[in-house]
């Protein structure tokens, strides 16, 4: 139809009741490289494929630790993700300072959802161009939330966003019933295998382009203990990749073709 008339700003509805600017922002998410998240009864795992702009440049960081019990994986405009994750860090700190307890995951996710929604309803602002997978643990156990530029946040059992993420989602749907009872290692294995599904034909998971994060909850001496956010990056990913993913060689990460952002 007349898409170009109704897509100039996010304060215009199309005749069908759609907001095109928000839908375009969701396209930015699809341009980013894939990230996968999944949750069991005790752990939540986030995995990501990193991209570099050129052969010699560093790889864009895709997973950010927000607090001991919270982490996010991003796909899309990394700078927008930085703004959101900084806000989450502040809110987590405030909760610890005021109440002495880590912020419930649902609360912090609702906060960023509301911020994102506000940028879709007021002129002069643009929607956030990033999708996030928020993984965290609290009194209810481990959680995984998907955040999208429209401000919609949903709790998931497993999720994948970014380029070619449909392949990962298919893998996750196929194995969905197994996740709840997975051990930490099995969950990591599924996370890496789902990630692998989304890679382009000639690409592989290497220590340079893969990153992984785990947060867990367990009990020690009857007390509920949080297994703090732990990120595996660079060489640390090596053993995990060898154990879980068959690779033809280790170590040499080949940069992807030049792509914008991550």
């Amino acid at each position: 139809m007349f898409r170009n008339n109704y897509d100039n700003d996010s304060v215009t509805f199309s005749p069908q009741g759609r907001i095109f600017q928000v839908e375009y922002a969701q396209e930015a998410v699809k341009q980013g490289s894939v990230v996968v998240g999944l949750v069991s009864k005790t752990h939540v795992v986030l995995t990501a494929v990193k991209r570099n702009a050129e052969e010699l440049s560093s790889y864009q960081k895709k997973i950010v630790g927000v607090d001991d019990h919270l982490g996010v994986a991003l796909a899309g405009l990394a700078s927008d993700a930085r703004v959101l994750s900084n806000f989450m860090k502040q809110q987590s700190l405030a909760s610890k300072l005021s109440y002495g307890r880590p912020i419930p995951v649902e609360r912090v996710v609702n906060m960023i959802g509301d911020r994102a929604q506000s940028s879709t309803q007021h002129y002069g602002k643009r929607p956030y161009g990033v999708g996030l997978l928020v993984g965290g643990v609290d009194d209810l156990g481990p959680h995984l939330f998907e955040f999208s530029p429209s401000g919609l946040t949903q709790e998931m059992l497993a999720c994948a966003i970014g380029a070619r993420s449909q392949m990962a989602r298919t893998y996750l749907e196929r194995h969905l019933d197994k996740f709840a009872d997975c051990s930490r290692e099995e969950l990591i294995k599924h996370g890496l295998l789902a990630l692998k599904e989304s890679l382009a034909q000639d690409k592989e998971l290497t220590v340079d382009n893969t990153s992984l994060a785990v947060i867990g909850v367990g009990s020690k001496e009857g007390k509920r203990r949080v297994e703090n956010f732990k990120m595996y990056d660079g060489q640390e990913v090596g053993p995990l990749l060898e154990a879980n993913v068959e690779t033809s060689g280790t170590g040499e990460g080949e940069g992807d073709a030049m792509e914008t952002d991550s």
């Binding site: 008339n5 109704y6 215009t12 509805f13 199309s14 005749p15 069908q16 009741g17 759609r18």
Partner: peptide, 24 residues
Amino acid sequence: DLSNSVFSPDGRNFQVEYAVKAVE
């Protein structure tokens, strides 16, 4: 219908009507 708050000649705010479509 391109801007909110604008009345059409027959007294309608089209953006509000389009919003109703989203509800439907």
